[in-house]
């Protein structure tokens, strides 16, 4: 897994890694059912404290991104999370809001923001719709 950590950032290390693993899953670089490294393996690979990795896995698990199987380890979930559409809209809406505020504050136009989204979408999913 290619994960980059900024050790000296104000953003908690676990948040950084959680969002990158989500990115790897959504972009298909990690496949459903694929096994993730053990807590110690990932701690050594990323050179971070194992308690932080425990935190990362439990957050990913409660978000439904991975499944923890007793004695076997962590696996990418094979089923997507079932949430009410309204709840999903609310969560994504909140993120969209802060993105829009930042974009508009820095002087981007509506069309430019749309383009940013299109570009990012292609980076994650290629040209599939």
């Amino acid at each position: 897994m290619l994960i980059q950590v900024d050790y000296n950032s104000g953003e908690p290390i676990s948040h950084q890694v959680v969002s990158q693993i989500k990115w790897l899953v959504v972009s298909g670089k990690l496949q459903p059912g694929e096994k993730l490294p053990s807590i110690r393996e990932l701690a050594k690979e990323l050179r971070i404290n194992p308690t932080t990795v425990t935190r990362i896995y439990s957050e990913l698990s409660s978000d439904g991104v991975i499944t923890l199987r007793q004695g076997q380890g962590a696996f990418v979930s094979t089923q997507s999370v079932q949430l009410p559409k309204a709840e999903i809209r609310r969560r994504v809406g909140r993120l969209a809001q802060s993105m829009l505020v930042e974009g508009l504050r820095l002087g981007l136009k509506r069309a430019e923001i749309d383009k940013v989204i299109d570009d990012e979408f292609r980076r994650i999913r290629g040209n599939t719709p």
């Binding site: 110690r40 701690a43 050594k44 050179r47 971070i48 404290n49 194992p50 308690t51």
Partner: peptide, 10 residues
Amino acid sequence: FMDRVLDIAC
């Protein structure tokens, strides 16, 4: 040294 401390933590 710090990596060795992590080994202990692991």
